[in-house]
């Protein structure tokens, strides 16, 4: 008796959801849903090619397809301003920055066999498990939830600007300060070692006394970035003997090997 009751309970439990699905026509999707699905397939395919291709420059170019597809999805979701910001910032600047980064790190043109690390199967397992869990939870949670796209555009420039400058002014201004900090930080990080010609000057009078040579690199290593290029690009013989007594043998061992590689 109890199994039939359970079945009947399950039937009555599932019925409203199915009815709600059928009234909205789950099996006959609207045109915008079909467009969303097709663009989503293109986006997902481009993203998968981005993370699996062995040609580094092609990965950046497929990323353009994925991000552009996402901009189309934003347009389909009536978020117009975000769509154009996406095109402007991601496709216009981020991918260009990535291509410049690939160029400056001397990425090989053509197939590079070691683009993937050795743990790609573990990564694949983790990603598939996460995808399965997330999709299951999300589909189960939002099975009967519908977006009403017939209302006037939720993300037009007017409404976005009004909300941004009425309710979100303080975070907006704080974000501009953060962008300034990021700009200054990127410039400081990527600056060539200007203090390098200045650095041998204290070391040349300091060669007379052994403790003074130990103190000279420590003052130079206050800005760690400033001192690091002198280690890598040290053609001058002056810093090399200064480091040899200061650094232990364990820290000294990697340096000649990397100098030999490049």
């Amino acid at each position: 008796m109890s199994p039939t009751a359970a079945v009947a309970l399950a039937a009555t439990y599932q019925h409203p959801a199915l009815a709600a699905v059928e009234t909205r026509g789950f099996l006959s999707p609207a045109g915008v849903e079909i467009a969303f699905l097709l663009v989503g397939l293109v986006t997902l395919g481009a993203a998968i090619v981005t993370v699996t291709t062995r040609q580094l420059v092609h990965a950046a170019l497929w990323l353009v397809v994925a991000l552009g597809g996402l901009a189309v999805e934003y347009l389909l979701l009536t978020a117009e301003f975000i769509a154009w910001v996406q095109v402007l910032i991601y496709v216009g600047s981020v991918v260009v920055l990535l291509l410049f980064g690939l160029m400056l790190t001397r990425a090989p043109i053509g197939r590079s066999p070691d683009a993937d690390s050795g743990n790609r199967w573990a990564a694949l397992t983790v990603a598939v498990a996460a995808a399965a869990a997330l999709v299951w939870v999300v589909v189960d949670a939002f099975r009967t939830t519908w977006i009403d796209l017939d209302v006037p555009a939720a993300g037009s420039t007017r409404t976005t600007g009004e909300s941004l400058f009425q309710n979100w002014v303080l975070p907006f201004e704080a974000l501009s300060v953060l962008l300034l900090a990021a700009l200054v930080g990127a410039i400081v990080l990527s600056r060539k070692a200007k203090p390098e010609p200045v650095e041998p000057k204290p070391s040349t009078p300091a060669t007379g006394s052994a403790p003074a040579t130990g103190s000279a690199p420590t003052t130079g290593s206050g800005p760690t970035i400033g001192s690091a290029p002198t280690i890598g690009s040290a053609p001058a013989p002056a810093p090399a003997p200064a480091e040899a007594p200061a650094a232990p043998a364990a820290a000294d061992a990697p340096d000649p090997s990397e100098g030999g590689v490049r």
Partner: peptide, 30 residues
């Protein structure tokens, strides 16, 4: 539009990125 469409696409994209972060060797690909 069913909310599941964008949300499922977002979940799949996130997991694609997760695979890339875990499996790639070049820092720029990460």
């Amino acid at each position: 539009m069913h909310l599941a469409y964008p949300v499922v696409l977002s979940a799949l994209l996130f997991c694609t990125g997760l695979y890339g972060v875990l499996a790639r060797r070049n820092a720029i690909l990460v």
